[in-house]
């Protein structure tokens, strides 16, 4: 949800904050299956901006935290798929298909809110997600 930040960000801050969300979309550009790519992209972007202004840092951390949980979910799906493909005692089953469909649903939802956050922060609005927002607030200090 959108809320007011403690100060109004400048045009350049809004652009950088928006880019932190766009970084997490990079996985789609380089190929979806490797779950580590989007996490790495947001992590590098955060490192590059860790001394930036509060608004930029705040959004970099929120993007990073959301990617971290997505990374766990996607990694399980990735390694499960690898074992289905290469291990003789593992095969396509209903729990596997249900998990992959869940991963797909979660990723689509995450994609939608990330695009929305990128657009809003580009306009200088402050977007604080449910759970990730308060968690970011605890980690990131002005």
């Amino acid at each position: 949800m959108s809320s007011t930040f403690i100060y109004h960000p400048t045009e350049s801050e809004a652009e950088k904050a928006s880019n932190s969300y766009l970084m997490s979309l990079i996985a789609i550009m380089v190929g979806f299956p490797l779950p580590i790519i989007n996490l790495m992209a947001t992590l590098f972007f955060y490192i590059a901006n860790r001394k930036s202004t509060y608004f930029v840092r705040w959004h970099c951390i929120q993007a990073l935290l959301s990617q971290l949980s997505l990374f766990v979910i996607n990694s399980i799906g990735f390694w499960w798929t690898i074992s289905v493909l290469f291990r003789e005692d593992e095969h396509v089953s209903n729990p596997y298909l249900a998990y992959i469909i869940t991963v797909f649903v979660v990723n689509i939802f995450e994609l939608a809110i990330t695009i929305s956050a990128a657009i809003k922060t580009r306009k200088g609005q402050h977007v604080s997600w449910w759970f990730y927002g308060p968690l970011t607030q605890m980690i990131c200090k002005p």
């Binding site: 249900a98 649903v105 979660v106």
Partner: peptide, 15 residues
């Protein structure tokens, strides 16, 4: 919520 979504989806016989 995530576990609930998974349990709900796994109720369907995808096979």
């Amino acid at each position: 919520l995530a576990a609930g979504i998974y349990l709900l989806i796994s109720r369907v016989n995808w096979m």
